[in-house]
């Protein structure tokens, strides 16, 4: 290899590497900003539609939703979601009878495992839906939680 070719090749490699690393780094910051519209919607079906573009959820036992049967205090209802599904993009938690059904959303990366837990507020007894987006499809699990003292309003 002569000098000219060597320089040309190394330059090409350098260019290729920078574009490649550019491509690799980019997807990490493409998460949409806080979805105000989805959080404002007051109807469950509309809320699910605004997140996924459809409300076609397939209920599966592969999504595990852990929540209490009875929540004595609606201000603190512990929720845990995990799933055996692969390539999970996001996990969303909806509470049907809350003023705004969408309570929270979790965008995962290739590094994270599909296991999340948090505590939410519930105004009254309601069905909780955990929706998991995996490989373009949306799977779900749901559970009815009885609330004895509401956690919203005052």
């Amino acid at each position: 290899m002569n000098r000219r070719n060597f320089l040309k090749n190394s330059l090409m490699t350098a260019v290729a590497l920078t574009t490649l690393s550019g491509l690799l780094i980019k997807p990490k910051s493409v998460f949409a900003a806080w979805p105000k519209a989805s959080f404002d919607i007051t109807n469950l079906d509309e809320s699910i539609k605004s997140v996924y573009g459809h409300n076609d959820l397939s209920e599966t036992t592969k999504v595990k939703l852990k929540a209490p049967d009875i929540a004595e205090n609606g201000a603190i209802v512990p929720i845990n979601v995990k799933t055996a599904l692969k390539n999970v993009e996001s996990i969303m938690i909806f509470v049907e009878n809350n003023p705004q059904p969408l309570s929270s959303g979790y965008n995962l990366t290739s590094k994270s495992l599909p296991i999340i837990g948090t505590r939410i507020k519930m105004g009254k007894t309601s069905k909780i839906i955990a929706a998991v987006k995996s490989e373009g499809k949306v799977f779900s699990a749901s559970k009815e939680v009885k609330v004895t003292i509401g956690g919203c309003g005052g």
């Binding site: 705004q100 296991i115 948090t118």
Partner: peptide, 28 residues
């Protein structure tokens, strides 16, 4: 972020409890 790489991005609405708790798991 773990060592500068995003691990999870969470969006919360007002229905998350006061003094919020969050747990998650990642490969690290």
């Amino acid at each position: 972020k773990a060592n500068g790489d995003e691990v999870i991005v969470v969006h919360w609405g007002p229905a998350v409890s006061k003094n919020p708790y969050l747990t998650f798991v990642y490969n690290g």
